[in-house]
Design a protein around this nucleic acid. Structure first.
Length: 434
DNA sequence: AGGCTACCTGCACT
DNA sequence: AAGTGCAGGTAGC
């Protein structure tokens, strides 16, 4: 199977700037597949089968070799901004891959600085974020984000992922096959607007979302201008391959472009305020978008004194009030901060909070820069439940990491075992230690 | 305008 | 072993 891929290339990134093990499975993208044996993550991006893994200093990436996936693939039509994936055979395929990665992983901004800023404004964020560093908002394809989050309504992450996988297999272009497993890209709006799509999706287990997806695909592919969805992007964070332009000024309810995108998304079937905000944040690059779902509403009530007095229920007014509050508290990238707290609240990450024994955070000023020292001490593994002897645990990932094994809940073993991997002790930079 | 309720499905939990 | 509740909501009264 290694033969199907190019050699690993690496990019220097610290775990506090990016933690793929958290970012790729915290409910942003539903398409990344974890390969347990090789500790890598796979997904098709812009027609390329991409593979990622990470250690404390580097992000490693590779792609499936083009000469090995010889089957003629159809051109992806209908998505104008999607750049051709297999141009420049002898050109810089590696550079192209790196461009995709930097864009998708949104690597241009300094996450440590953002965490420091959010922490200084909000004690609750500071407390929760210590165990959840390196969470980055991905810049996903807007259409994929739209369909994925239509699927997400009244649903759980595991099934959303299954549904997105089915969309790709049944309606997305085939890209490559590895270990007998086919990898497809995400389907175009045209593909999902075809005949019998609604009925087929229903029989594939999509439930009432089948109609929403079909109707939205028809609207986007037939009742809107080509490139309409991408035109709703934040001009400072445009679709892949499009040049960035300056945006407008921030306001309490968000920038004008964000409000406009939100309003237009609401016209689509199956898209309410929450889904519109998810698409705005993760697909259109509007950092101030704060999706308020059941989790966030609970967080707002529990930690930010919402839900009292007149605003008992989560209606339109309360929804906007929560978003405005977090924008005021966290600033222009409030949606990023929101995502960190959302992840900390996910059940599949619950062991990370339970296992954490002590957290020390020190912030120090050095000229213009702010350095953060974060030290997270994790409890030694709790005794695994009885029938667990044969459950595979990952080999020691790093010599510096204490061998923890997540407290296991009944059932979902895999998520928990993986969750504890990312909790580890980090040291400040040498520079600061002097 | 704001507050219900039905809606598909699979899985954890009783 | 069948039954219940819930999961990153939305549309339509």
């Amino acid at each position: 199977m290694a033969g199907a891929f190019s050699d690993w290339r690496k990019l220097p990134v610290s775990l506090s700037e990016l933690c793929i093990n958290t970012t790729l499975r915290c409910g942003q993208s539903f398409r990344w597949q974890n390969i347990a044996e090789s500790e890598e993550w796979r997904c098709v991006l812009y027609g390329n089968l991409l593979s990622l893994k990470q250690d404390s200093q580097h992000l490693y990436y590779r792609t499936s070799s083009p000469n090995l996936c010889s089957s003629p693939k159809l051109p992806i039509s209908g998505t104008p901004s999607r750049p051709p994936s297999d141009t420049k055979i002898n050109g810089n395929k590696d550079d192209h891959l790196l461009d995709i990665l930097k864009h998708y992983l949104n690597l241009s901004s300094n996450l440590s600085d953002l965490y420091a800023q959010w922490s200084s404004q909000d004690p609750n964020f500071k407390k929760k974020a210590a165990q959840f560093t390196g969470i980055r908002i991905l810049r996903q394809d807007p259409w994929e984000a739209l369909v994925s989050f239509i699927c997400s309504s009244n649903n759980n992450i595991a099934r959303i992922s299954q549904m997105v996988e089915k969309l790709c297999i049944h309606y997305g272009p085939f890209i490559a096959s590895v270990d007998g497993r086919p990898y497809h890209d995400f389907p175009t709006p045209e593909a999902l607007a075809g005949k019998d799509v609604e009925g087929n999706l229903r029989s594939l287990g999509f439930g009432y979302r089948a109609k929403y997806i079909y109707q939205t695909a028809v609207m986007v592919s037939q009742e809107r201008e080509k490139g309409w969805l991408n035109s709703l992007c934040n001009p400072e964070a445009p679709a892949f391959g499009v040049e960035a332009k300056p945006g407008d000024e921030m306001k309490p309810e968000g920038r004008a472009g964000y409000r406009d995108a939100h309003e237009k998304l609401l016209e689509l079937q199956g898209v309410g305020p929450k889904v519109a905000d998810c698409v705005s944040l993760m697909g259109l690059g509007w950092g101030e978008s704060v999706p308020v779902d059941t989790h966030v509403w609970q967080i707002a009530q529990r930690d930010y004194r919402f839900g009292k007095g007149s605003q008992k229920t989560l209606n339109k007014a309360t929804y906007d009030a929560v978003g405005n509050h977090f924008r005021k508290l966290w600033g222009q990238e409030a949606g990023w901060a929101h995502s960190v707290l959302f992840t900390a609240d996910l059940r599949s990450f619950a062991d990370r909070l339970a296992a954490t024994k002590k957290v020390d955070v020190a912030v120090k000023d050095e000229k213009d820069e702010i350095e953060i020292k974060t030290e997270v001490t994790t409890a030694i593994a709790l005794a695994p439940p009885k029938a667990e002897a044969d459950i595979k645990t990952e080999p020691e990932e790093k010599p510096t990491t204490t061998g923890t094994r997540g407290k296991k809940r009944k059932g979902s073993t895999e998520g928990i075992v993986h969750a504890s991997q990312t909790t580890e002790t980090r040291r400040m930079s040498k520079r600061l230690r002097k």
